[in-house]
């Protein structure tokens, strides 16, 4: 349905997006994952025709949208990262304004406004001014405004940044419902791994303007099929122990965590006895250890060498 072909964007000397190839099938929910500054928003801006790419193409049903963006604009709903609403107007007035802008027929507009307000759970507060809303409520109206014209593709740019858990859950539920019940194609960008895991069938992982990995969750996790992750809880912190573990042949990486340390080693290397000996040597007690299944967070760490919040 929608694809990007070697899509690139350079700002002066800096390459913000570097030859990205992506595709979205109809009815799919796709995640675009990456830390701040990875190039997610620039990619979205190019896909939604707000920004002209330096090179490459965006195709909707096989037709380029670069020269003639009107086709993609008709089927696209974009939820921007910022709250793109008039704060001095009520939620209802905002939606009425955006409905008129999107040329929703007069007789349908009222029905659509009530539908989308119901969808985001703000029907009973529609007459209140947006400026009196909490951050989460504003973001819900922000989403509602993008749904008025019943878009076939919905692009959400980090829609849950800085909001309360209740609103966050509501937004995730709404997006899930839109995808599952109406068959809306979703492109969801976030740097919250758990959101993408919860919502998306497929994930693109971006870093430094490039797609470093893509695929379904299981496909991405298989990248780490050659590694074991061991979470160890220690009686106290010890730098010499950390160094000693790092020096072990089978160990690929060691990280300090809130609970203790996390050791990533070659699959099946069986380093548990070595770990116990190393701890004994520096007089540290291992309180608890656990073999962990790798998460997408681990995949991201493996691919980019940093965490998503970096």
């Amino acid at each position: 349905m929608l694809e990007t072909i070697k899509l690139s964007k350079t700002f002066k000397e800096k390459k913000a997006v570097d030859e990205i190839d992506m595709y979205l099938d109809e009815g799919e929910s796709v995640g675009l994952l990456g830390p701040n500054g990875a190039g997610k928003s620039t990619t979205i801006s190019m896909i939604s025709s707000l920004l002209k790419p330096t090179s490459g193409d965006v195709k909707l049903n096989g037709k380029s949208t670069i020269k003639n963006p009107s086709e993609i604009r008709k089927v696209l709903g974009v939820v921007p990262q910022e709250i793109a609403l008039y704060e001095e107007l009520s939620a209802y007035e905002n939606l009425k304004f955006f409905g008129k802008i999107y040329k929703v027929k007069k007789e349908l507009l009222e029905i659509r406004i009530q539908e989308v307000l119901e969808m985001v759970g703000l029907k009973d507060r529609q007459k209140e001014l947006v400026k009196t809303f909490s951050g989460g409520m504003k973001r819900r109206v922000n989403i509602a405004a993008a749904l008025l014209h019943k878009p076939k593709i919905l692009i959400l740019d980090e829609p849950t940044v800085g909001i309360d858990p209740q609103s966050r859950n509501h937004i995730l539920e709404t997006v899930k419902k839109l995808n599952e019940e109406t068959g809306m194609t979703i492109l969801y960008t976030s740097h919250y791994m758990e959101e993408v895991e919860q919502l998306c069938n497929r994930v693109y992982i971006m870093d430094h303007g490039r797609v470093v990995a893509s695929g379904s969750k299981s496909e991405l996790l298989s990248i780490l099929s050659t590694e074991d992750t061991i979470q160890i809880q220690l009686s106290k912190k010890s730098y010499p122990l950390l160094e000693s573990i790092k020096g072990m042949e089978a160990v690929r990486r060691v990280e300090e965590t809130n609970e203790g340390i996390r050791v990533i080693s070659k699959k099946g290397s069986n380093i548990l006895s070595d770990l116990v000996h190393a701890a004994e040597k520096v007089d540290i007690q291992i309180i608890h250890f656990q073999m962990e299944d790798p998460s997408l967070e681990d995949v991201f760490l493996h691919l980019t060498g940093k965490t998503l919040r970096d």
Binding site: R73, V78, P80, Q81, A84, F98, I101, K103
Partner: peptide, 13 residues
């Protein structure tokens, strides 16, 4: 700055 302009650009206006 608020992003409303981008919304308008994406609309038929």
């Amino acid at each position: 700055v608020s992003g409303i302009w981008n919304r308008l650009i994406l609309s038929p206006v």
